[in-house]
């Protein structure tokens, strides 16, 4: 039979079922598993666990620090807002004050000007009154003279006192 081509290699058809290799495989497998277990439990797993814990700690710390910074920033913002509001209030106050003082000055100036104008008006009125009075007196004098002259011209005996009374009464009745 032509089995010798590869017969020596696959002795039992399915090499997995060849019990003569079992002890060998199991021995080396157990050795490999023990080696891996020792590597893991002695070196690798504690190391990785420590690194992960450290990272977790670092992250937690960073988050806490960030939280704190955020708080600080909020505080700073609040302070800034307060300062801003204060400044604004102060500015408004100053503005109001200035406005008030300016208003007062303006009022004073206006009052002064009004007073001056009123005085001048009064003076003017007084002078006008004087002028009018003097004008009236002049007119009376002229009217008396004219009346005396008229009476004299008409041939009458001019009683200067009577004429003056009549003229005065005419003028005053006006």
């Amino acid at each position: 039979m032509a089995t010798e081509t590869h017969g020596a290699e696959s002795a039992s058809g399915m090499p997995q079922l060849d019990p003569s290799t079992y002890s060998n495989q199991i021995f080396w497998l157990v050795l490999a598993l023990v080696a891996i277990y020792l590597l893991l439990s002695r070196v690798a797993l504690p190391r990785i666990g420590a690194v992960l814990a450290e990272r977790q700690g670092a992250i937690t710390n960073d988050i806490a620090a960030a939280e704190e910074l955020k708080l600080k920033a909020a505080e700073a913002e609040k302070a800034y807002d307060k300062a801003l509001a204060d400044a604004r209030a102060e500015a408004a106050e100053i503005t109001a004050e200035t406005k008030a003082s300016m208003q007062a000055e303006l009022d004073a100036a206006l009052a002064k000007a009004d007073a001056e104008i009123a005085e001048q008006q009064k003076e003017s009125a007084a002078r006008i009154g004087e002028i009018r009075d003097s004008a009236t007196a002049n007119v009376e004098a002229v009217a008396k003279d004219t009346a005396e002259a008229l009476v004299a011209h008409l041939g009458g005996q001019a009683d200067s006192g009577q004429i003056a009374g009549v003229v005065s009464s005419k003028m005053g009745g006006r």
Binding site: H6, E9, S10, G13, M14, P15, Q16
Partner: peptide
Amino acid sequence: HPMDQFVV
């Protein structure tokens, strides 16, 4: 011979 690769 698909099983030859499993020979110890």
